[in-house]
């Protein structure tokens, strides 16, 4: 079973409308690289000069990767990576 990446609605133009993209990876960094390989249009939405954009929060199984190991966070088969816009609340 691969790792799943949940794509938020405003990014689905870049994933042929898919809400979930399946990848095989051992870290979040690899998983996002695989996502970009499959859907190159999403790269500029996620990254700015190689760095993850500040207003995109990445969750692995409901845990924010900033509390884990950032992009180095390990993922395994069956894990769910969610990309969520951060600009809300307060």
């Amino acid at each position: 079973m691969p790792t799943k990446i949940e794509i938020p609605t405003p990014m689905r133009d870049q994933t042929d409308g898919k809400g979930v993209v399946e990848v095989t990876a051992t870290t979040v960094r690899d998983a996002l690289a695989e996502l970009v390989r499959l859907h190159p249009g999403i790269e500029s939405k996620l990254f700015d000069q190689g760095k993850l954009r500040p207003y995109i929060n990445v969750f692995v199984n409901d845990e924010d990767i900033r509390y884990l190991d950032e992009l180095g966070t390990a993922v395994k088969e069956g894990d769910l990576i969610a990309l969520i816009p951060a600009v809300a609340g307060g």
Partner: peptide
């Protein structure tokens, strides 16, 4: 809409 669809910055 609360975020930019290009870079997810706040509007």
């Amino acid at each position: 809409l609360n975020f930019c669809t290009d870079d997810f910055g706040p509007l």
